[in-house]
Design a protein around this nucleic acid. Structure first.
Lengths: 346, 346
DNA sequence: AAAGGTATTGGGAGCGCTCCCAAAAAAGAT
DNA sequence: ATCTTTTTTGGGAGCGCTCCCAATACCTTT
């Protein structure tokens, strides 16, 4: 029942090769023949066999998206990843690729998971890697087997020249957040960091520090609580900072900020009067908390889409120079930092 | 660099066919030869070419997971879907299949999206469909082309005998929730429904109604607010119900319940003293709201895993009889309904 | 009208596997 | 030791495509 090239060729009265040329937009086909063949293809609803094609061309038009398990991937950051996947899909659809999703299992060791991905690498033309830690061995392995890939964060120093990546301006965004708090007159500004083994976490802390120092305020380790991007560490971190005494907090993620808000409310302090708070990400939840969360917006779907574009470009193009892209962030001021612009509340 | 069967055969001093037999666990190979071949395969890190295999066997070992776009998929329900994918992946890994993810775009019409999936159907051995509305044409199309698939909710009446599906006991769960509220002495129990075009939404409403009627309380349409599983409709629905006067609410999803809680607090009523509330799903957020949400737990990853199992069974087995599975739900009582069991609060 | 060029077309080989059938080897029966 | 049966092995054909090269058709040009 499934037809092949030969069948279409017979119906159109031409050869297999000619049909193949039409399908692949090869210019060496006369307009009239092309017309006729297209007509038959249309009529017969013919679709070339993916696998035969892949076997002959050694190109698969399949891209893998690799998301290692972290509890936060599954719980707190689910929205982050779904937005990312949405962005990736958009480009894939446009350029006629499909997306194979690799999620690791909670029980998986990292190596077991990576082994699975590597074992099937011939199935894919390239990979998009999310939440890879700074010197994850996967990067070396992929470099070794020559598989194109793009990271969704800044790679560690020793890889940075060899790897393509897309990320957002974490440093700039953090600076903007802290500058905003400073401009509101806050002086004891603490931070609850993200995961410091993660470049995003590192860079946001760096931005926090730079903003303070640029304004002549010395960096004080007592005002830094180490967190993991998640709710609990936001709550715990905030309790620490409250003991240290702060009048404002910059949190490494919205989820962390929400945990922190709970801790603040619990001790009876007011947001933003007593403690102002700014998050990072601008997830949909940011407007679902009260007071609504001021935060640094990052364009998540765009990040995914850009990563996909870079990857496909590098697969299809000849130049294999790694590209680095930094997407801009934008401070969104809401009530949690005390200077709300008007936004509708549902 | 990439080796093929023939290379391995040469190294092992046997024929291509023998190597193929070893790889496919064909019993007609002597123990000693098998040993030797396995050794070489191991040494050479040989992996059979996926595409050559698929071309020859007409089986791909690729499963598609289809998630149509709804704003709630992306925002409110992201956790639901990531838990589901996690469950699916678990089974796929075990049984050596991989997962192709199909997400529709916001701008996509349904048909455009489905067309994309159908166009590539030869790429996949089967499909898992999430959030398909009751008489979605996709089901017919897939039946027509003979593609195996499993639904993640109850199909509409006209399909129910022809389609495999996995869902949870929505009716039973809703009944349990309402019975619980009744047992607490509540008598004016309202509900904010889920999407009524969706079987889960329908069935939960049905369960609500049955529980009331079983207890001699007539069903009152005034106490039913139609929602869409999302936060806003929870908020709006609750405002309606407050005007109608209720002392308890059963919400069609946790997200809806959280929207409703906001509305209750906003008018200065207390939860659960003035209005008790029970949700459905038991998402991680349920414990992150205050008071913590009583809710009907449904085993989401298990749902995904079971769907994957059924699908692979039907692909690999001969019997093509559709299977229907109903997973049990379980009422989790927390503070929002006023009879908390002790659970740790972070 | 012939020669030369270019645009178009056809068919063989090959991608790496499985499946089938026949050949060879080993084991059992007489 | 010979014949049968069973186990094990090898090789051809084919899955449906692309890619290359040769063949044909169609134009120009002189």
């Amino acid at each position: 029942m499934d037809q092949n090239l030969e069948d279409i060729a017979r119906l159109a009265g031409v050869s297999r090769s000619t049909v193949s040329r039409v399908i692949n937009n090869n210019p060496n086909v006369s307009a009239s023949t092309r017309q006729r063949v297209l007509q038959i293809i249309q009529e017969q609803q013919y679709r070339p066999n993916y696998f035969a094609r892949a076997l002959a061309t050694r190109r698969t038009r399949i891209i893998g998206v690799v998301i290692p398990y972290t509890p936060l991937v599954i719980f707190d950051e689910a929205r982050y990843f779904s937005a990312m996947l949405q962005g990736i899909t958009e480009v894939m659809d446009e350029r006629d690729y499909v997306m194979l999703l690799w999620l690791s299992q909670p029980e998986d060791t990292k190596n077991l998971f990576y082994e699975r991905v590597i074992a099937q690498h011939r199935l894919m033309d390239g990979l998009i890697l999310a939440s890879i830690s700074l010197d994850d061995p996967l990067q070396n392995q992929l470099l070794d087997i020559g598989m194109p890939f793009v990271l969704l964060e800044r790679p560690g120093q020793r890889f940075i020249d060899h790897i393509s990546y897309v990320t957002v301006d974490n440093i700039g965004g953090a600076q903007e957040a802290v500058n905003h708090l400073l401009s509101l007159g806050r002086r004891r500004i603490g931070t609850i960091t993200g995961l410091l083994s993660h470049p995003d976490g590192q860079d946001r802390l760096m931005g926090y520090r730079q903003a303070l120092e640029n304004n002549g305020i010395p960096f004080d380790p007592v005002l830094v609580a180490e967190g993991h991007f998640d709710l609990d560490s936001g709550y715990e971190g905030m309790r620490e900072l409250l003991r240290a005494g702060v009048d404002a907090v910059f949190a490494g993620s919205d989820i962390t900020a929400i945990g922190a808000m709970r801790a603040i409310k619990e001790v009876g302090l007011r947001i933003p009067e007593d403690v102002a708070i700014v998050g990072f990400d601008d997830l949909p939840t940011a407007v679902n908390v009260s007071p609504r969360l001021s935060t640094v917006h990052q364009p998540i779907p765009e990040k995914g889409a850009l990563a996909a574009s870079l990857l496909l470009d590098s697969i299809e193009g000849e130049d294999k120079v790694p590209s680095h892209r930094l997407l801009p962030t934008r401070l969104i001021v809401r009530e949690s930092s005390g200077m709300a612009q008007l936004e509708n509340i549902p």
